[in-house]
Write a protein that binds this DNA or RNA. Sequence first.
DNA 1: ATGGTCGCGATGCGA
Length: 277
Amino acid sequence: MRIATWNINSIRTRKDRAIDFLHHQDIDVLLLQETKCKDEQFPVGDFEAAGYNVYHWGINQWNGVGIVSRWDIEDGETGFPGMPGFDKHGTDPQPEARAISATVAGFRVWSVYVPNGRGLEDPHFDYKLQWIDALGQAVNQSREHSPELVQMVGGDFNVAPLASDVGDPAFVEGKTTHVSPEERQTLNNFLETAKLTDLVRPRLPDGYTFWDYTQGKFQKNFGLRIDFLFGDKTAEADVVDAVIDREQRTGEQPSDHVPVIVEFAGDDDVDDRPMVF
DNA sequence: ATGGTCGCGATGCGA
């Protein structure tokens, strides 16, 4: 079982790249962020023709999250109980399409796109912290509701937890989002509340997942690690491989983020079974 | 150097 997360930055622009990725990396479940389309605009037919099911939530041209899977997608939920909304003037907060979850092959998988924060003094910054807090509560409630499922949360968290996750000198503690003590503490609290750990870092201590489009930052390797696959104890115990697919930042029209992949031991893949009768 | 580059039913806004 191979599960990936990817901030695709428009599914319509990059549907062919996404489908090629699913095949070349033998992906079972892909968690998408920033699809940047409404549900009816998602190219579902292309994915179905490639052998995948699609579950998507998009309200407008911003945000948008989805789950793409070889296996059945059941008990889907858009958003989560207690999910904060946002309004820049603070008068009329509206929910945004930043979280989606479903049951797939014994996993409860979540695809999340954490608010950017915009600036340390911006209303979006408090929204970001509250959104992460509320997500932790929701994941914990999901575990209590369905203790038999393996919890797995993937997405763009817009937080670089460690110094080793920051290669872009534009991100400075005390001056910018993504690296502030408040954001890092909030992310740590989230992992404690939701009882999740980073499934990738123990196997890949280095490597970024995002490079800004401007100023040749990819060529200079001025990146950030802000995209994660987090899992519970059961997930952690079953990890056999982890990949940050850096090649996806190259070529024609790349997303500014690359996919992160985790492979789990398991018997769902017939090809992996010994041929003994 | 207050720049740069993407994507969006947009012509500013969000990242």
